[in-house]
């Protein structure tokens, strides 16, 4: 078992003929992910990856033809909201949006619309999902993680890679790694994923990687204290970040005194979570 993606995932790639879309589709297929279709409006009828993956003009047409049950989005920020609406309207239950830089007002409209449809959105501005040995949906390098029993959830990309890699170096594997993304308004939050890990029989322990901005880590701490039986280890990035400055991610900003790393660490510690001083310390806290 694992969460969200596995061997039964039938993946559709939106923006498959673009530079990034094509590169990462190649990587996902090489990893063993079942990529059943691509969508690029105007390029329906073409094939990519030496005739392995058919391209369709719309998500609806692609779903009708291939029964895709998950979509990953690689289209540029100005078109990504439309891509998310389109995937939701075509009835795809899991949408993973990798795209970075989507305006927050667009994301509020997307999120409020998708909530009416009971669609799970992961991201945007995220590295996607990886169930080691089964499927990779997004851009997490496949070779930095091995299968195992640790669930990983994170707001960051390369920082997550550090943690997976440090775990692999001591022979520790992951059940599923979920990158929820660094934007202030996204589809899936820590609590959603913690709940899934709590119910997943393969997952025995959880790593939660947070950062400054917002209050999702504090809410997650409350959930962990009240609802979780599995041990959780954490790391919070941005302890030295100055207030009022957006630290790369649109969501990583200390505003009006809220969202500091020290508040988050205090909340997590109080909930019984062991918080690492730096990411490479995580494997030893998991032992």
């Amino acid at each position: 078992m694992s969460i969200l993606v596995n061997k039964d995932t039938r993946l559709l790639v939106q923006g498959i003929t673009g530079n990034e879309g094509l590169f990462h589709t190649t990587q996902m297929v090489a990893y063993g992910t079942n990529v059943v279709a691509g969508v690029t409006p105007g390029k329906g009828g073409e094939w990519v990856l030496e005739g392995k993956v058919p391209v369709f003009d719309s998500v609806k047409i692609a779903v009708d033809a291939t029964e895709a049950n998950a979509a990953v989005i690689f289209v540029p920020a100005r078109f990504a909201p439309d891509a998310m609406f389109e995937a939701a309207d075509a009835g795809i239950p899991l949408i993973v949006c990798i795209t970075e830089g989507i305006p927050v007002q667009d994301m509020m409209r997307v999120r409020n619309y998708l909530d009416q449809k009971k669609v799970r959105l992961v991201g945007p501005n995220c590295p996607g999902l990886l169930t080691p040995g089964e499927a990779k949906v997004g851009i997490i390098p496949g070779n930095i993680a091995i299968p195992g029993n640790v669930g990983v959830v994170s707001r960051s990309g390369t920082l997550t890679y550090e943690v997976l890699y440090a775990m692999k170096n001591v022979g520790m594997g992951a059940s599923t790694c979920v990158g929820i993304g660094g934007d202030p308004v996204n589809g899936t939050n820590f609590i959603d994923v913690l709940q899934m890990f709590e119910h997943d029989p393969q997952t025995e322990k959880v790593v939660m990687i947070g950062e400054i901005g917002g209050t999702d880590e504090e809410k997650a701490a409350e959930f962990i204290a009240n609802k979780m039986t599995k041990p959780v280890v954490s790391f919070i990035a941005g302890q030295t970040a100055p207030p009022g400055k957006r630290m790369g991610h649109a969501g990583a900003i200390i505003e009006g005194g809220a969202g500091t790393a020290s508040d988050k660490i205090a909340a997590l510690t109080a909930a019984g979570v062991r918080v690492a001083k730096h990411p490479e310390e995580i494997p030893s806290l998991l032992k």
Binding site: S154, S156, G157, L159, G238, A241, G248, H278
Partner: peptide
């Protein structure tokens, strides 16, 4: 490369007694 890792790199410098001169994410 990467905002979270860039923040972490600053934090870890501080952890070992240094002071970062900047935050810089070259992006993906």
């Amino acid at each position: 490369n990467g905002a979270g890792l860039a923040m972490t790199s600053m934090d870890i410098l501080k952890l070992f007694g240094g002071e970062p001169a900047n935050f810089l994410d070259i992006g993906g």
